[in-house]
Design a protein around this nucleic acid. Sequence first.
DNA 1: CTGCAATGGAGAGTGACACTATCCATACCT
DNA 2: AGGTATGGATAGTGTCACTCTCCATTGCAG
Lengths: 218, 218
Amino acid sequence: MRIGALSEATGASVATIKYYLREGVLHPGVATAVNQSEYDDSHIRRLRLVRALADLGRLGIADIARVLDAVDDPSVQLHDAFGVAQDAMVAERPRDPQRYQAALIEVDRFVKRNRLHIRADAGVRPMLADSLVFLEQFGWGTDSTMFDGFVPPLVQQAAVELASVPESADRAEQMEASVVGTVAFEVAANAIRRMALEDASWRRFGPGRRGRRRATPA
Amino acid sequence: MRIGALSEATGASVATIKYYLREGVLHPGVATAVNQSEYDDSHIRRLRLVRALADLGRLGIADIARVLDAVDDPSVQLHDAFGVAQDAMVAERPRDPQRYQAALIEVDRFVKRNRLHIRADAGVRPMLADSLVFLEQFGWGTDSTMFDGFVPPLVQQAAVELASVPESADRAEQMEASVVGTVAFEVAANAIRRMALEDASWRRFGPGRRGRRRATPA
DNA sequence: CTGCAATGGAGAGTGACACTATCCATACCT
DNA sequence: AGGTATGGATAGTGTCACTCTCCATTGCAG
């Protein structure tokens, strides 16, 4: 398969494929001449993975490159896959150092209290700390115990998701599955959470309790 | 308070505040002269809200403006707050119409099966459909029943979150709380979900089962 | 074997976005 | 009275993810 065919097969323009090649998110094909290379199924799959991370996960190309480096690095153990992939997915944020430090400490307490095995330098810690900072600013308090209720169900979910990663498949496939699963299930979980919120809001504040239902009035 | 003081109080530069004013994400102050306006606490709070939506929720300025329009529109009922706010938070995506349509139908089934009160045109439907499409492409199947297990815990979470929105406060505050809560708890839930995943991965693939622990070898 | 389309590679250009800077005519404040 | 701050408008900046343009090959149909 040459670049034109790869483009046809994936929907990405030739120019975009060249760009991805340049940025290192797509491995080069086998060169058959100075201006000719052969691509295969691995390129189609990789291209799909890149699109998934970009469109669904809203990752930038540079972040995707970092995730894929981990996916392709044979020295990264499977048990680190989720962690490494996720670290590359945490966006840097502008922070208020004061509140942020305090929040980080609170996160540590949260992790310890819930007996979670999380690396000390895992990117998810800052992530949770950031949300704490914002909740605090809007009057939700600083206490991480408000999250404790979320843990058991999410642990259960995680177990279900992990079970979908076949233990028998080869490392590359497992890594890929980890990454896709992390992103896709995150979006799904967010969607369902929002649905639950809309549903709950309807039950609490809905038509039965106050006035009429009015979706988008003129 | 004039613009300089508002800038000091919030950390946003004067230029940025002017920009927000122009883009309509911040309401104008009370003009006391042709080149003088008075700002107050409402501007400080609004500026914080904008930062929360931008930094934590990763919304663009135009999307934020849409969310805030709903927040400020007195004709939007409280019970629609979550829905309307969320609709503005759903990113448009490039889609494969074939798979997407099928996925949307599957989402409808999911909603019905779980007896969720979701508007027919709610933005969360496409959101869940998108994740289904991607999962399908990576071999996870198309059946939305794989999400059913997520529903009860998420419904429970939603109830807890909603309970934090004080019923007595005025509409503006409740709307604001809805929006901040939606975004901040989403980030928090994602962080905890990822922690659960790392924890579960550690337990399943970790040191005890296969070889040594190796975080980032040379 | 000839000519036109396709290719790899490199650099420049584009459009969207979120600011950021500059101007200018007022207005505030000491 | 004069230096600083302000509102308002317009232009400029840096980043990002492409997208376009060239050019020297190479592939392939006729």
